[in-house]
């Protein structure tokens, strides 16, 4: 897990440098800024990046959009003002504080109740009110269905809450993951087979069989089986399932990133699982006496008649 979250925080920091500059610009222009202003002041920014940031600001309420003379302007809106919401009473402040502390992981209503010592009806009222004022929001958590967590309105929920790319409305897309896992495995085995074909000695074959998550990412993207954009980190976690299935191994390369390679097992499948008893779900209840026994066992009969 460590690796993927690292990647994410890194990405956030990168963006925030840009965000800061934009914020500065907007703060110093109380009248609002236009797209042309931005281009003038921050020339080294690419358009898609800019749109991204602006969209984000618009969404979380940092910017307001207005139009004068057919021109679009963005205006900075101080978020700190939001906390001092008009009519906020003490209870709202307490609850706000608790929710704020929970960060982007959110907090469950029960826990808010314990911490705030409010009774359920009171708490519900406060939450409703904060919600309508767009100060907080409720997010459905993937870890338990029907469980809602609260967090500040402008926070991006943590991936443990939303589940990341693998969730569609709180539902884990199991089949999607399976297909990806299979494709990743296929890619690795084909890579291995190819290197065996090329020959050149075991060392060369082995080294040629390694693939980085980037390689696999490229392959998966080109396959076009996914309609949501997948990050390299996403592929990395899929590749880990292939490792867990014992179909690949993962080593750390000299630059600290992971390398993946298809592998064989040491042993053929053991004799025990070739029998019906070795994989029998009712083996614990099978004995000499009783309904379940080896003489009358239908699993056994079927296997014998195969």
């Amino acid at each position: 897990m460590g690796d993927s979250s690292e990647v994410k925080t890194e990405a956030v920091e990168e963006v925030s440098a840009l965000e800061l500059r934009l914020l500065e610009l907007a703060k110093s222009n109380v009248e609002g800024i236009s797209n042309d202003d931005i281009k003038e002041q921050i020339p080294d920014i690419s358009l898609p990046e800019l749109t991204n940031v602006i969209n984000k600001f618009l969404k979380n309420g940092t910017f307001e959009l207005f139009k004068t003379k057919d021109k679009l302007y963005y205006k900075y809106k101080d978020p700190s003002k939001k906390t001092a919401v008009k009519g906020a009473d003490n209870e709202e402040k307490v609850v706000y504080k608790i929710i704020e502390e929970a960060g982007n992981k959110g907090i469950w209503i029960r826990d808010i109740r314990f911490k705030s010592n409010l009774n359920m009806t009171q708490l519900n009222k406060v939450l409703k009110s904060l919600e309508t004022k767009k100060i907080i929001k409720a997010v459905k958590s993937v870890s338990a269905s029907k469980k809602k967590v609260y967090m500040l309105y402008d926070l991006e929920p943590d991936s443990t809450v939303t589940g990341g790319a693998w969730y569609q409305d709180q539902d884990f897309e199991s089949e999607f993951v399976d297909v990806l896992s299979q494709q990743c495995q296929r890619y690795l085995s084909e890579k291995w087979e190819e290197s065996v074909k090329k020959g050149g000695g075991p060392l060369l074959i082995r080294n040629r069989s390694y693939a980085t998550a980037n390689d696999v990412h490229k392959f998966i993207s080109e396959l076009g089986i996914s309609n949501v954009p997948l990050t390299v980190a996403d592929i990395e976690s899929i590749l880990y399932t292939v490792v867990l299935d014992n179909n690949a191994e993962r080593i750390v390369a000299t630059n600290g990133s992971y390398l993946y390679k298809a592998v064989n097992r040491f042993l053929p499948s053991p004799g025990l699982v070739k029998t019906t008893c070795g994989i029998c779900p009712v083996a614990n209840r099978c004995g000499d006496m009783g309904l379940i026994n080896a003489k009358a066992c239908t699993y056994f009969t079927e296997w014998l008649n195969q």
């Binding site: 299935d245 014992n246 040491f266 499948s269 699982v273 070795g278 994989i279 779900p281």
Partner: peptide, 29 residues
């Protein structure tokens, strides 16, 4: 020891399914 692991993993795989085997190996790792 490694061979024993493999056998056990295979048994989990056949007795349950590939997902269970995955969980088992994850716990092992």
């Amino acid at each position: 020891t490694q061979f024993a692991w493999e056998i056990v993993e295979q048994c989990v795989l056949e007795k349950f399914d590939s997902k269970a085997a995955r969980i088992f190996r994850l716990v092992k790792l």
